[in-house]
Amino acid sequence: MELKRERIGVAKEVFNKEIIALKKTKEILGNTFFDICEEILKCKGKVIWIGMGKPGHIARKLAATMSSLGTPSFSLHPAEALHGDLGMISKDDIIIIISYSGESEEVVKILPIIKLIGAKIIALTGNPISTLAKNSNLVDIFPNFEEACHLGLAPTSSTTVALVYGDAISVVVSQEKKFNKNDFGKFHPAGALGKKLLYKVEDVMIKREETATVSQDASLKEGIVEMSKKGLSIVCAIANEKVYGILTDGDLRRLLEYNIDIYSKSFEEVMTKTPTVIYNDVLAIEALKILRDKNFTSMPVLDRNENYLGIVTLHSIIRTGIVPEVKE
């Protein structure tokens, strides 16, 4: 029990130190932060994040975040830069370098070449008199704070601060660029969010030729046979390219429960004449919401001229990776 308390106590102290570091940094945000965002918004090239060691990991994450939020960005390893990767930099780029000491050997060595190329250098450092600070166009100085490491040595608080600072830049710039959910979806087409924002009903529907359909004067028996043949939960009566009515597997079960003679009935007598339908150009996530709200498994898909195109089902939507939101 004593060991448990000790471990949790040390963990809470790590949280406390990093929270204090974040609070101190938040308080000093001002003109320099504003100017950095302004430079990025005016940038005609790319934003390149650089860091050595642990800050290098942060640089890679921030480049990924910034890119996903609409600003072309990548990270560059300073040691690799010395062996040819400096060719990735152009004069229109902005270089953001993270180094709390501002004296990392690999970082210091690439500064003269970056200046020669003509790219602007932005420094995020805790040392205002460092080589990095003296050779940068813009410098934001992090306040003094303790590293959360029990030795006070390993980058912990400083990397957390750099991460949050970079996230703040990315969010502010993205917001001012009016980057929206649809834009975000374009950059994340393989993810669930991207699919929700991009996929339309026509992308997930079962096309007409694969669906169960009958003519408007069909018998109920013909409708049941067609439904069984196609292995679907719905059969549509089509007349002049329009949906004349539908019958679902749920409707059929209810008919059987009431002992209706399915061999003597016409399809028209038992079908739903005004079914719920969806248009092909509506987002698939909207179709999913309708199906869930109405407790349906499928519904017909029409074009804007009311012509029948196929059906959309819960399964055809979910199998693409679009998942329903969990209801609270």
Rank of each mutant, 00 (worst) to 15 (best):
A192D: 10
I246W: 00
V277N: 09
G231V: 14
A192Q: 14
V282M: 13
E80M: 05
K115T: 12
P72V: 10
K44E: 14
T160R: 00
L309S: 05
T25K: 06
R60W: 00
D261R: 15
R7S: 04
K42V: 14
S228N: 13
T272R: 13
T160V: 09
S90Q: 05
E202V: 07
V312T: 13
A284R: 04
E269G: 01
G84M: 01
E306Y: 11
K327S: 14
V282C: 03
V277G: 08
K221C: 01
A192T: 14
K44A: 04
V323M: 12
S101H: 02
K4R: 07
Y100D: 00
K23T: 14
C43I: 09
A192P: 09
A59M: 08
V139N: 00
P300T: 11
V235P: 13
D293W: 00
R254S: 07
T272N: 12
F34N: 10
E6L: 14
L291I: 10
I96V: 15
T248L: 08
F33C: 02
E106I: 12
L86I: 14
S215I: 08
E80Y: 14
I28Q: 07
K230I: 10
L314D: 15
A218E: 12
I110H: 07
S68E: 15
A154Q: 10
I121H: 13
H150F: 03
L69K: 08
K17R: 10
T159R: 02
I322R: 00
L41Q: 03
R5G: 08
I20T: 04
D93E: 06
K207A: 02
E226Q: 13
A123N: 07
D261Y: 07
S264F: 00
T248Q: 03
